[in-house]
Design a protein around this nucleic acid. Sequence first.
DNA 1: TGACATGTATCTACTAGTTGGTAGACTGCT
DNA 2: AGCAGTCTACCAACTAGTAGATACATGTCA
Lengths: 194, 194
Amino acid sequence: MNTDLSPKAAEIASCARSLLATAGYNGFSYADISEAVHISKASIHHHFPSKAELVRTVLVRYREEGRVGLAAVAERIPAPLDQLQAYTGYWAACIRDGSAPFCICAMLAAELSAIPAEVADEVRGHFLDLTAWLAAVLERGAAAGVFALRTSPETEAMAFAATVHGAMLSARAYGNPEVFTQIVQPLLDRLLAH
Amino acid sequence: MNTDLSPKAAEIASCARSLLATAGYNGFSYADISEAVHISKASIHHHFPSKAELVRTVLVRYREEGRVGLAAVAERIPAPLDQLQAYTGYWAACIRDGSAPFCICAMLAAELSAIPAEVADEVRGHFLDLTAWLAAVLERGAAAGVFALRTSPETEAMAFAATVHGAMLSARAYGNPEVFTQIVQPLLDRLLAH
DNA sequence: TGACATGTATCTACTAGTTGGTAGACTGCT
DNA sequence: AGCAGTCTACCAACTAGTAGATACATGTCA
């Protein structure tokens, strides 16, 4: 599986990624990319044979990027609370500066039954990855006596992820990036053992 | 503003509503409705001049239904905790039986920048309504000493709504309605003053 | 009662524009 | 020579939406 792309292919993928974040799978077309990247529609097909393949490639790279990022957090930041804060802080920054106003897997999860199966598989994979990472952090924090979990680490992790995704939705609905922080900040405090 | 629809128009609107819940604004077409309701595409245009108008009508009725439902809960159920449980329980049932696997306003919020402005306005309106209702319930519960709020009722309400919406997303991603309950149940326990 | 009008609901047939995708030719680099 | 990358020109299918005819039910007036 080759994830290295030519410069133009990378540009197309990056454009597709931002279009996915704002409009979803059915909300953008090859014409949109064509215009943004200054290339003909046919040339996009040269790099990615189909829309499904393009989006799948975007997701594979997105997931890889996420795994690397989360692994780096787990490695470089010792305290579990700070690890969670690094995760939410990353998204707060992305939403605030508008560079990535939404997790594309959350976006595609909403459209799950209206997208190609191979794309849907990647979306499900991301949810599993993210929840596993969060559960591990929560479990470590609980073992260290920093977090007080009310349920299993897995359930707590799913709830955490759900709130973060819901916060992205709310920030978009209210047209206000600060809404994300406002919702997510208390989420961290609440986990602490008092 | 007339919200009474002829039987066929109501059937079209109800079909559009379920298509919106599963695929979103850009995920369905007049052809889908045409097939499901056994009517020609042109006849749909007789009842609703445009897609934007159709969806706006669906949202107006959806919001009205929601307001009536939430008002009934507030009126008939005395305890604030039971009121929240009625809200989440309603959605748990809808998701479990597949009748409404997603809040259409949450769905459309994700697509917010890719839908007509008049539709987007209704979506924003729903978020305001829902948060106001939740904030009122939370405030009443806090005043009665039942809930222990860590932040303002408004912030707590937004976080509550975000988790519920995120739980819908997760249930869809995992293809498992029980995930919704699993996430939302602890949310209620956590609010209680110990 | 009968004639005519009005309004609602439906249809077939059509439009212009967009969708994802293909064929084949041209360029320039190795 | 071969290949990666680009293009113009095209395609069939689909998109929301329109035009105009037809059916039928409900009036209202003479």
